[in-house]
Write a protein that binds this DNA or RNA. Sequence first.
DNA 1: AGTACATGTATGTTAAAACATTAATTGTAC
DNA 2: GTACAATTAATGTTTTAACATACATGTACT
Lengths: 149, 149
Amino acid sequence: MQLEKEIVQSKFKNAWQKAVVNIIFTSSWLNSQHSAMLKEFGLSLQQFNILRILRGQHPNPATVRLLTERMLDKMSNASRLVEKLRQKGLVDRDICPSDRRQVHVRITAKGLDLLRRIDAKMDIVEQNFKSITESEAAELNRILDKLRG
Amino acid sequence: MQLEKEIVQSKFKNAWQKAVVNIIFTSSWLNSQHSAMLKEFGLSLQQFNILRILRGQHPNPATVRLLTERMLDKMSNASRLVEKLRQKGLVDRDICPSDRRQVHVRITAKGLDLLRRIDAKMDIVEQNFKSITESEAAELNRILDKLRG
DNA sequence: AGTACATGTATGTTAAAACATTAATTGTAC
DNA sequence: GTACAATTAATGTTTTAACATACATGTACT
């Protein structure tokens, strides 16, 4: 997949501009691979992210606020996503007794089990990314971190 | 903006996994900066992309098919986006006489003028990305291209 | 206690994306 | 020339995002 051929304009003004388009394009490429895999399990990427955050907290609960903060895409839809997951039996929701504004969300055994099955497939998808070496991946991380300042 | 603090899980399994999340996160960060800037001009990111493609073709027209192929996000909404732009007077639409299935889309003088004004602001936004050097940008491009194979 | 203000979550509305289907036109085989 | 496949756009439907607002609860202060 050659960037210049696929995209927008035939020439970039400079390396920075190309990098911007390259990052966006690559992100879209990664997203579509992950989304396609998750679709087999009936999850959207964002639902999957929430489940992973909850697994990270397990056995402690997370509040909706915590979920919102940790989502990649800033958004106000965590409530609705949690409700979707609850309908599938993948999370539990309880009003926090000590602060009745908060809602405690926990991943269920069924949710944990689903994540385990997804992990296996995820490893396969991530093999695709090993066309770069570990030190290239590390360099990529360093540059991206620096880019964001 | 430190990735580990902001995102998902406190630890990554390896450099590749971190790179995947890093790319998606950075892309979202870039998108939001561009979108915010374009909002001042009443354009979405995708509408802007279409205008840029049309400017690249100008004074020749592009078909809807060409636009769809060149969009970063694969999608079937090019027709609707073109209609939105047409309502704003930024593009013209004509049925191609030699093949009446095709639609020829051209950027108008008003569209070109808008793009020129956006270019100036875009340069300012892109100053933000110069926290990495030109050779780092080039290295980033090399690694991303290699990643996608 | 009472008021003002902040916080956490849910909901309503609008806009956009994803996906499938339809409709019109053209090309091809016979 | 007719039947049928292929191409190109547009449209319908469902899902998801973005943004604003409402509502309940909690906190601070008098």
